[in-house]
Design a protein around this nucleic acid. Structure first.
Lengths: 116, 116
DNA sequence: TCGATACCTGCGCAGGTGCGCAGCTATGCA
DNA sequence: TGCATAGCTGCGCACCTGCGCAGGTATCGA
């Protein structure tokens, strides 16, 4: 197992074989970044509150989300825009009301995992 | 169910009962913030790589982590300081080598959940 | 004792983040 | 038609974050 890239092959190592194991464990860099990005979306208490509310209550309007979380509506709107751009939530327009819901299965899994 | 706090009681609501459900779903604010903080620790690709390596490979020295991830050692050290301050990892000194490991059960659960 | 090594720390910079404010569009009701 | 409401957007500010650089401390080998 010679998994150390050429640009760091000259570094000294404490436990050489464990370094290779670690590199194998990390695997493809893109996959970890995808998860890091997912975690980043949940890393804000307000966004997490929005997602938990949507996940456990079902479709909710923007202004109701604002009332439930104590945020004002531009903040909610911006948070939802971010989540929508990431494909985590989707909104359905019904007259002048837009009701959002969580559509990303991985995020649903995380929400289930942390808040039941 | 009148769960809307007094300072937002005057807001109009689209689906009044759903607002209360959402507030109940959000629950205590501190718990969500704890989880948001946890997610925040995993929200950086480098930190996540360190944690995955530690989780799947076992105790690893700082310089080996630097080699495995391609970071330089001050960056690894600072990331580990953050994780240590949060109680996620712990280091055991053995001569001049410090081997770190993941000690937080919740974070272990998240790592298992996302990267198997 | 002297040098090399493993790790840690303070500092500063570049870049990102969240949110309030003001203002916009679109829809519904009288 | 006129007005209120639901939601979205651009802008700017304060704040935070990650990392490189330089340098410090502790341990080991010669």
């Amino acid at each position: 197992m010679h998994l150390v890239p050429a640009d760091r092959a000259d570094r000294r190592s404490i436990d050489g074989h464990r370094v290779c194991e670690a590199i194998a464990a990390i695997g493809e860099a893109g996959r970890l970044r995808t998860w890091a990005d997912r975690f980043s979306l949940l890393a804000d208490a307000n966004r997490l509150a929005l997602l938990v509310a949507l996940h456990r209550t079902g479709p909710l309007a923007v202004s109701d989300l604002a009332t439930a979380t104590g945020m004002n509506d531009p903040a909610v709107s911006q948070a939802l825009r971010l989540l929508r751009a990431a494909g985590v939530v989707a909104g359905e327009k019904e007259g002048r009301v837009v009701r959002y819901r969580v559509v990303d299965a991985d995020v649903r899994g995380l929400l289930e995992h942390c808040v039941g």
